[in-house]
């Protein structure tokens, strides 16, 4: 080894570069926290806050790597507040919403479930929808917090739907009304 000091230096350098690359590349475990508009939640560290034109939207976050030519990310989480209904009943609001939504043939129901998030009752609806010629799979979680109904709409392509569940769960499980 003393005969080839340059070789030793090069080997060491390669090892350092590779090790640092492995350490720094693992950004999937890094998270960010959004706090504002009366809510807070944690989301994937590589995602960014997005502008939204959606009705009654509170905030939206998206994966910048999935942005199309129109700057619309196909992997996102959008938080909305539905219009108040009589008694502000979660189930009733939910039922009324999907009765109308599935009247449109471009939306196809996949599954529905009653779930519990942090000891709060919530309703989940998974469906397929067409948006600008692209099919997206949506997971909408309806939850009441501090007397307000929130819809956490998580969307991506059907191909990436299972893979993105951990990012969606990160938002859903950390969601809190302030």
């Amino acid at each position: 080894m003393t005969k080839y000091p340059f070789l030793a230096v090069i080997t060491l350098l390669i090892m350092v570069i590779l090790t640092s690359g492995c350490v720094n590349n693992d950004t999937s475990n890094q998270t960010k926290t959004y706090s504002g508009n009366g809510i807070s939640f944690t989301y994937n560290g590589t995602w960014e806050i997005a502008n939204t034109t959606s009705p009654n939207a509170v905030v939206a976050v998206g994966d910048p790597k999935t942005v199309d030519a129109q700057k619309n990310p196909y992997t996102f989480v959008l938080i909305q507040k539905p219009n108040a209904t009589q008694n502000n009943d979660l189930q009733q609001t939910y039922n009324q919403n999907y009765a109308k939504l599935f009247n449109n043939s471009s939306n196809q129901r996949v599954s529905e479930a009653n779930i519990t998030i942090n000891n709060n009752k919530a309703l989940e609806n998974v469906y397929l929808t067409n948006s600008s010629g692209m099919q997206l799979q949506m997971r909408a979680v309806w939850i009441t917090q501090k007397g307000i109904i929130y819809v956490i709409l998580c969307g991506t392509t059907p191909f990436n739907f299972e893979k993105e569940q951990k990012n969606f769960d990160l938002v859903i499980n950390s969601f809190k009304a302030q």
Partner: peptide, 17 residues
């Protein structure tokens, strides 16, 4: 670099009216 990407989301959980 990543914050420089402007994104717009126009999806909705509600039926489009």
């Amino acid at each position: 670099e990543s914050t420089a990407v402007p994104m717009t989301i126009n999806q909705s959980a509600f039926p489009t009216l």
